[in-house]
C-alpha cells in the first residue's frame, strides 16, 4: 500500500480516491436514498475557546500564518497586510475585534479568507477544526444567545448545531464583512 502510494503522483492518487469514494457513495445511496438532502456542510472553527461554524460559501480559503506588515493609523484589531500568492489581504484579529481576551499564540491559529469580492479580508481564528457535517436532527433554533456570546451576537444566525455535548454557533461572515465597524478600520482622527 505504502509502496503504491509512493509510486503514484498526487493527482492520480486523488483520482483513485475519488473513484473509490464515488463507488462507495453510490453503493450507500442505493442502500438508503434521500439521506444526502438532510445534511449541512460548514467550516468549524474556534474563537476564544468557543465553537463556531460558517457556511462553506462564506470562506474562500484557509491560510497558514505568514508575514504581516503594520498599517499605520488603523484600529488595534487590524493586524496588518499580508501577501497571499500575490494577493494583498487585510488580516483582522477577530478576538480583539469582538473585545474578547486575546488567545495565546499557538500553532493551531489560522487565517480564514472571507469570500467577499468587495474586500480581501481574512480573520485570524484560534483554530480551524475543518469541515463539519451536521444532520437535520442536529440543527436547533436559538432565539436568544447567552451573555458570553454577546459581542458576537450581531453576527450570529438563529441556528445552533448540537454535536454530542458541544454547541456549534453559526457565524454569518457576510454580515460581519458588511458591518460598519468592521469596514471602518481607519483610526478616527481627532
Amino acid at each position: 500500500m505504502r509502496a503504491d502510494l509512493r509510486e503514484l503522483d498526487p493527482i492520480t492518487l486523488l483520482q483513485q480516491m475519488e473513484r473509490a469514494v464515488l463507488a462507495r457513495e453510490k453503493a450507500q445511496s442505493q442502500a438508503g436514498a434521500g439521506e444526502a438532502q438532510d445534511q449541512w456542510y460548514g467550516i468549524g472553527y474556534m474563537i476564544n475557546n468557543k465553537r463556531f461554524v460558517s457556511p462553506l460559501k462564506h470562506v474562500r480559503e484557509v491560510l497558514l500564518h505568514s508575514h504581516v506588515v503594520d498599517v499605520p493609523e488603523t484600529r488595534s484589531w487590524l493586524r496588518g497586510l499580508a501577501n497571499s500568492r500575490g494577493n494583498l489581504i487585510t488580516v483582522v484579529d477577530i478576538a480583539e475585534f469582538l473585545q474578547w481576551p486575546l488567545p495565546e499564540n499557538s500553532d493551531t491559529g489560522r487565517w480564514m479568507l472571507i469570500n467577499d469580492t468587495r474586500l480581501n479580508c481574512a480573520i485570524a481564528v484560534q483554530e480551524v477544526i475543518g469541515l463539519k457535517l451536521f444532520r437535520d436532527s442536529q440543527i436547533h433554533a436559538c432565539e436568544k444567545h447567552t451573555s458570553d456570546l454577546k459581542p458576537v451576537a450581531p453576527f450570529l444566525t438563529s441556528r445552533v448545531f448540537k454535536e454530542d455535548s458541544n454547541d456549534w454557533y453559526e457565524l454569518d461572515l457576510m454580515m460581519l464583512s458588511k458591518h460598519k465597524t468592521f469596514v471602518n478600520a481607519a483610526l478616527q482622527s481627532g
Binding site: I43, L56, V62, G130, L131
Partner: peptide
C-alpha cells in the same frame, strides 16, 4: 488538513 478544508471550499 488546511489543504483539505480549502479543497472542500
Amino acid at each position: 488538513n488546511v489543504l483539505s478544508v480549502n479543497a472542500s471550499i
